[in-house]
Structures are given as C-alpha cells and as structure tokens.
Design a protein around this nucleic acid. Structure first.
Lengths: 349, 349
DNA sequence: TTGTATGCGTTATCAG
DNA sequence: CTGATAACGCATACAA
C-alpha cells in the first residue's frame, strides 16, 4: 500500500525544526548553517523523501520544462535534433515534453494548448506544413513565454525567434555544383513549397540558374512528399522524359537515393547520364554507391543551439527576436563529380 | 506585462457562483446543469482562462505524464518506437517526458529520479547497457507507479513488466537461414552481450548451430558497438581471415551494410563469397544492393503497445507482471539467397 | 444542483 | 540564522 508521502513537514517534525527551514536546507539556501543543511539532507535521505516538483512549480511558476512540437519525430533528421535538445536541456536543469503534430494544423494547436496548460517555461516548434497562421502561440507571447522555431520557421511580419540554416544558399550551392559539372537541363524535386525551408531552396535553385542564364520554368520543379514511395513515382516519370534531365536536385537523401536506385534499375547510368544531389546527409547516405552529394544538415547543433537560446530568453539574458542561422556543409561525393568540367567555382556556406 | 493569471475564482466571481461549481462545470461534471456548464465554459473562454495542469495534478495525484528513458533517441529504431508511444499516449490523454541515459547507469538513475519527482504516472524504460541493478526503480514500485521495460528489459528475479520481441527465435531463424544456404563457417557480430537482447540473439545463433552439429566456439562471436566505425574495423579484420567466413550475422543493419560495402571494396563478392544478414530492417536497408536480409523490428507497434499496457496498468485494468512478446518478421533479400541449397526449412516467427 | 471548507507540497514574505 | 503564515490553483468530502 502506498505509504503516505514524505513531505518537508515530516522531516521538520522529526528534526524539531520548521518546514521552512527544511525547504531552505534542502536547496542549500545561503542563510542556513552548514550543519543544519547537512542534518536536513541526511534525514531527508533516510526518510526516503522525494521533492514534489509539481508543488514547487505551482508555487514558483517555474516548471523547468520545455515543450517541443514537431511534425513527426521518427525521421533521422528530427531525432538528431531532439537528441541535441534533450542533452542541452538536461545539462541546464530542464527537460522536454515532446509532441507530434503529424503535419496537421489542428493537432499543432492542440499540442500548443496542452503544453501551455502544463506551464512549460518555453516552447520549441518546427511547424506543420499545414499551419497557415500562428495565433495558437499568442497565449505564449502574452505570458512572455519564449517560443523559438527551428528548421521550419514561419515567415512572419512579427519577427519570431528562430534557428535555421541558410536554405537558399544551400539550394544555390548545390545547384551551382550541378551546373559546374555541365548540367543544363535540371530538375528540382522538393517538398511542400508552402514551407519556407523548401521555398528558399527553390529560390537558391532559381538564382543559380540565373547565373548561367537558364530561364526558369515551372516544369523544372516537382513538389513531392519526398518519401520512398514518392521517389519511386518520380523515377518512373523521369525515366519517360524526352530528353532525360541531366541533373536532379532532390530535397532529401531518402528520396534522392530511391530515385537513383530506380533509375539505375531502368538502365540509366548514374552519374554518367544524370547527376543527382540530395539534402540532409543522413548517416546511411555515405554508404551508397554511387556516393550521394548532399548538404550536411547540422541537426545536433541545431538542437543544442535552440535550447541554449530559449533558456537565455527564459532567463532574460537575451531579448526577442533571436534569428540564428547555422552553418551547413556541402558533402561532395561521386554522383556529381564524374564529369570533368569547369569546377573553378566551389560554393560553400 | 503578464496579466494576473485567470483562475476558476475569477470566473466564479464574474458569474456570482462558487469556484467549486466552476471547477465542475469546466469538466462537464454530471451534477451540474447543462446550462450552467455552458455559461461557465463560455465565460472561461471569454476571459482567456487556461487550466493549470500543475495545480490539478498536485491535487489529484495524476499527472497524465509518462516518463520515458532510452539510451539515446537518435536511432532509427528508437525514434520509431517513440513516435508510436507519443501517438498512443496522446490518443489516451497522456503525454511524454523523454530522457536519454546515453548508456550510462548514473544518468539512468538521474533520469529516474527526476521523473519520479515530477510525478509521472508511469515509466517506460529501455535500459542502458551499463545498468547492472535496478534499485533506482524501487521508489516507483513502492508507490505502485507502473514501470514497463521495452526492447531492453532486465533479466530479473522480480518479474518486471516488459514488451520485447523474441530475440532468441530471431537469432535462430536468421542463422538457420544462413545454414540452409550452405554456410558452415559462421561469424556473429553483435552488441554488448550484457544486454539480454544481444545475449538472446546469441543463444539463437548457438541453437541453430547445434541443429547442424557445428560446435560453438567463442571466436565465432565478436562483440561490437555496431556503429559504422565498428563495421569498418570489423571488415578489416574479416578481410584478413584465413579462410574467410562464409556467412555473417550482424546484429544491426547499419553495421551489416557497412561491412558489406567495405568487403566489396576489398574485392570480396557479397553474397557469393560471404552471406550477410542484418537486424532491424531500417528503412534504408531496402535500398541497398545487394539487398540485405534482416529482421523487421516492429518499432512502431512496440511503442503503441507499451503505452497501451502501461495505461492499463495505471488504470488497474491489468496487474503486473505483463510480459508481451511481439511478432517479428524475417525479411529475406538477395544477400543470403544467391546460393541454391537445401532451403527446405524456412524458419519464421 | 450548488456552496463551504480544506488540503495537495512547496516556497515567499515577513517577523523575530 | 530560523519560524509562522499565507499563498500557488484546483478538486473533493461534506453540507445544504
């Protein structure tokens, strides 16, 4: 049977002191004598005392909890970010409540509500692709609870806090590399361009085309879910194109590799006939032949950084808006380096 | 400036009713008239009221929070499990605090302490490889807070709740498949055999050997971290073996594929010279050539199931111990099917 | 159907 | 340095 909860009152009673003193002694409050502190902590241990974080939070209005909302947590990229967050949070005495929006605006709103009611000290969000407005974060703003967006940040009038990479430059660099390898008939397969991340990569793609005076055409861009299935579908369509594109910039590695494999099965030589570039540098990408040229997305650093920032905001060591843009790295592997061409220009971050 | 918190008292004052009525009305308590309920909820909305989950939890001793401790969350397998957990939890009105032990016993203890203090209603654990005793979960048992282990469960005298797959059978089946393909000089590269998951796969490996009267030898088993780096190292050692093994059962896909790639680079033909099998069926495994034979680890189902179970335990719809063993599936791909041999026996789960 | 009174376990304020 | 007391916001036993 669950024994009665041991509280600071029980400890106080045993030691013949007040609960207030126990409370202070437990956290080494400076105004308590060293001796009393130790005595308190010793008996606390002996009695099997466990502090009640809920009660403490209620009283102090500090939960040391960060809410996290992500579209889904089971991607290599996202779980890496979350791993960084968790590490960074724990090091600073915080912990995480992680929720998934499943790309649904309604679910994202529900998550925000729950986390708000649970009195998180800060909120970290990568928005769902369906979220068009961000009113559900207003309660946080009203209560001055920091909200920091990462990876997927809204393009706002109000300046939001955010941690991102320079997607435009990344898209530009990758495209430029393809062009430098001699490609002139490019295809860009990307995600939902309602999302800033993908729109910016597309901007970069266009900018790169401009530098070699290739006029942009809508047919050059395919929107896709970027899954394995989407990749298979895309490959089918590509194989039937007349003429074949000579280079494809795909917005994630999974899809890029799927397309590579499918095209190879149809007898198309990669990279000889078609250059392919991906995005993310998922760990397994390095294991493929031909190697996949890609952008290393610094997920771990992003996780570490975003927590660092939100805790600085919580402690008012910084003031909004914070817009951090992380460095990325281009990973150049053989699938875009077979053709010897003018690679004098090597764009990097 | 953060306006004063709107509480049930403010609402009560506005409506000239008691706080108790408001409290009840807010959650549609049956003994409150429909009309009053609606009036209360309407003014609550109007006043921008948000319930304080902390206060509620303190009062009711129910936090609707599940604690989760995992070695690390950034593996494909683990993030899939977590995704399932989160989904299942939210559907049942719960949410997750996720923490990483980083394979450290000390950190695991720290996580358990924190989650205990935060009054989680239940705890889900995949143990660190260093955890030798499980005393840090005693406080939970004393307070009758359910603890359910998943994937990595302790081998205990006390019968713990657990959700696992039949690792022994999986190891047996995979090994048997290799033997049926004609392999007689086998190697098993696995993780830390202090962990039951790996020890059981090893048991299965041994059992399979017995069926064809191959005496087991310690040299057949290599313990490893199963990372890409570990795979590269292993491949180097393998390539120098005289004679080469004719089949390798590796305990995860990442390492299996790394080894495959490395051996291929050294001119060894896979699967013609060496059959290779992995474990987990990570999504990218399907994309490789040669295809990797592996065990599909049902991560999503495991996540769903373990939450279902712990909530049943919380609600006392079940009583400890619950030991659920999930079905797995063998995924047979070309890397172990090139040799035509006596495959009359096709072991499955 | 509603109200009254009290406590969940902690910490902040003020007084000593 | 220590103690008494009053909150924090909610929910429940009991009374009406």
């Amino acid at each position: 049977m669950p024994k009665k909860e041991v509280t600071i009152y029980e400890i106080a009673k045993v030691l013949n002191i007040s609960a207030a003193t126990v409370s202070r002694g437990l956290k080494n409050h400076p105004s308590i004598s060293k001796k009393t502190c130790e005595k308190i902590q010793q008996t606390a241990r002996d009695m099997g005392y466990r502090s009640n974080a809920l009660a403490s939070s209620l009283r102090t209005n500090k939960s040391y909890t960060l809410g996290v909302i992500v579209p889904r947590l089971d991607s290599n990229f996202m779980s890496t970010v979350l791993a960084g967050m968790e590490k960074s949070a724990v090091e600073r005495g915080y912990h995480l409540i992680i929720m998934q929006s499943f790309e649904s605006a309604a679910k994202e709103i529900e998550c925000a509500r729950l986390l708000f009611n649970h009195r998180v000290d800060g909120l970290l969000v990568s928005t769902s692709s369906k979220s068009k407005d961000f009113k559900h974060f207003d309660p946080f703003h009203q209560k001055k609870i920091p909200v920091v967006f990462f990876d997927r940040a809204p393009l706002g009038l109000h300046s939001f806090n955010s941690v991102t990479i320079n997607n435009k430059l990344a898209g530009y660099s990758l495209t430029k590399l393809l062009l430098n390898q001699g490609a002139r008939n490019l295809l860009h397969i990307t995600g939902n361009t309602d999302l800033l991340v993908y729109r910016e990569r597309l901007e970069g793609f266009k900018d790169a085309l401009t530098t070699v005076k290739i006029p942009f055409a809508r047919e050059m861009v395919w929107s896709s879910g970027l899954s394995v299935e989407d990749g298979e579908l895309a490959a089918k369509k590509i194989a039937m194109m007349q003429p074949l594109p000579d280079a494809i910039f795909v917005s994630n590695d999974t899809c890029a590799i799927t397309i590579t494999k499918c095209l190879q099965k149809k007898g198309i030589k990669i990279p000889e006939e078609i250059l392919i570039a991906g995005f993310n540098d998922d760990p397994f990408s390095a294991l493929f032949t031909p190697g996949l040229t890609t952008i290393h997305y610094p997920g771990l650093e992003m996780g570490l950084k975003v927590v660092e920032i939100i805790i600085a905001l919580i402690n008012k060591e910084k003031t909004s808006p914070v817009t951090e843009v992380l460095d990325f790295e281009m990973i150049i592997r053989e699938s875009t380096t077979s053709r010897k061409h003018n690679s004098k220009e090597t764009p990097t971050a």
